[in-house]
Design a protein around this nucleic acid. Structure first.
Lengths: 230, 230
DNA sequence: TCAAAAGTGTTTACCATACACCCATGT
DNA sequence: ACATGGGTGTATGGTAAACACTTTTGA
């Protein structure tokens, strides 16, 4: 290592992942119950320390897999939390991410440091360890902003989805009712939402058309800025 | 320090500040010329290492003052850059910020590690050290998004400003022409832009009304989400 | 035949856009 | 008087918002 670096202060660096999942028309978050002190038995956002040769993104994916059995999902940086006393063990600087997950695609399992993992509806969270309430609030706010600018909503749905599912997702994230007919008119104008020519089956009601997201068409349109005004 | 922490990997952590300033109807960035290796004589985004008892935000403000003589300005986190080999001296993880500055309020001065500081128009930057081109591009993109969601534009102007200045600022940041009459109609509808009942003087043309930003009124309006559609 | 969710059009009010001339001041 | 930037209104087209009934399926 360079001489210049040797005289600097060094810090342990962690990542914390707010895992959002959409199920039963609700937005949920996966939390773990801690096995160890500090905050033993408290619920917490999964996370852990960065290792020597990985980026923060790689570290976050690794921790996600180790702690919850969730693999290879969409991640976005939210914010760094750096208050010197935010962790009672000593100074830990943490980078928050949110992860977007289709909950049906994974069977969440508690890893070594956790006694349980569980999906919680975002409006009924338990008391959280450390400054994780702040991390959660910041992440949800960031999600609400990003969902209007980028097509991240599709990460929370199945590959093929109905317009009703799509609408309920936006209603859950933005926490407001949206008019069905107006929503569909806007969706129809988004050319990157394509009819898959398939329909649902096995439901107790009229089948619905299934749609797909086309990332190539999206890229073209998003060049000049884009705003999902819903 | 806690036993648990002792066994972790530790990293030097730095901040880099992309300093935006608005002058002569142009958006500029303050860069420093490095005195030392690596990248000796290259132009770079000012920044430095975090100390033991400061947050990243405090560290960024300190570095800004030490390296450029800019003090106590608006700062926003942009992104963390964590590729293990991004710094040839060894692993350095860096958090990028942008700073918004009214250039008339400061006389920028080179600190110890720099031979010069200089404002550069954003479309005529020199070759930059490290991964600072990537950091700059990411920061500009973030600024372009944030300026539509939050009233950060006012940080780049004087306390009292004319509507023409306000318009030129948006044109510079978004890099597009905006119709004067339509812009003014929209500005008139923003209740947090208040007439100061003063006018400019000493110009070679008709004096202009001066306006003020009212943060209290803004807070009220921004609760339900906000989008500067210009 | 009933329950459950899918699907569909019209009207109204507002807002974005495009566009060109007169006004107040300093020199 | 002229150069410089400040300031203003209208017509048009498009889109957001509000609103209720019919259709298709499974039970």
């Amino acid at each position: 290592m360079d001489e210049d670096l040797k005289h600097r202060s060094f810090y342990p660096l962690s990542v914390d992942c707010v895992i959002f999942g959409f199920a039963d028309n609700k937005l949920n978050v996966a939390l773990i119950q801690r096995k160890k002190e500090p905050f033993k038995n408290h619920w917490a956002i999964p996370g852990g320390f960065i290792e020597e040769s990985e980026t923060l993104e790689q570290g976050a994916q690794r921790e996600l897999l180790e702690e919850t059995n969730i693999k290879d999902v969409f991640l976005e940086q939210v914010h760094i939390f750096s208050k010197p006393n935010r962790d009672p063990r000593g100074r830990v600087i943490s980078c928050a991410f949110y992860a977007l997950v289709n909950p049906k695609a994974f069977n969440i399992l508690a890893g070594q440091d956790a006694s349980h993992v569980k999906w919680w509806p975002i409006n009924k969270l338990p008391k959280l360890a450390f400054d994780h309430k702040l991390i959660f609030d910041t992440s949800l706010e960031k999600l609400r902003q990003s969902i209007r600018i980028k097509p991240i909503g599709f990460e929370l749905l199945e590959e093929k989805f109905t317009l009703t599912e799509f609408q309920k997702l936006y209603e859950a994230i933005l926490d407001k009712k949206i008019d069905k007919r107006n929503f569909r008119k806007k969706a129809a104008k988004m050319e990157f939402i394509k009819d898959s020519n398939e329909i649902t089956s096995g439901k107790k009601a009229r089948p619905a058309k299934l749609y797909l997201f086309d990332p190539v068409i999206y890229k073209k349109h998003s060049q000049n800025g884009f705003y999902f005004d819903l």
